[in-house]
Amino acid sequence: MRRATRAFAAVLGLALPGRVLAQGTAAIPAEAVVVTVGMAVTTLRDLGFGSVVTGVSTTVQPVAAGAGAWQVSGNPNAFASITFTLPTELTNIQALPGSTMPIAFGAGAALWRRATNDPAGATPFDPATGATGRFGPPPNPNLYIWVGGTVSPAVTAKPGIYQGTIVVSLSYL
């Protein structure tokens, strides 16, 4: 009887690894975010280039203190599309009409980040094409956005304050 048991155990010992190898299993999560809360967009800071020199381009990086910044409050964990309406020039509000300054936005000129109001470590994206962002989890269901840019004043640019409007739009996907 003892020998029979040992023999059976030996057979099992050979057979079990074979069964394990003949089968594979894995799991994936299925996930959905139920959205019931609207959004509110707040401008935290304008994009400011400060004083610029004629004939010299000036760039403000999106992580810089002069970058434009918004805070968007919305549904926790929800996904949202982020798009911009970007100006191509700034207008001198102190000079005669027609006095403008080109402004451009590079492929990495915008950033977004969930929950945390710090551009260091945020996700870069091209403001011209937009991105899909995500709101933070409770208790901080916010989405932060930053934008930089480059102005290129002509050598003949007139002195004065040049302004333009950058519009950011968000919608739940």
């Binding site: 003949a22 089968q23 594979g24 299993t25 894995a26 799991a27 994936i28 999560p29 299925a30 996930e31 959905a32 975010v33 139920v34 959205v35 019931t36 809360v37 549904n75 926790p76 964990n77 989890p137």
Partner: peptide
């Protein structure tokens, strides 16, 4: 690949809803 349909109720509570889909393959 696996697809499916989520069916939220009209009074579905806000939240992140998850579950596991398990696949088994044998010879």
């Amino acid at each position: 690949w696996v697809g499916a349909r989520a069916v939220p109720a009209t009074n579905q509570a806000q939240g992140v809803y998850t579950a596991s889909i398990i696949m088994t393959v044998v010879y």
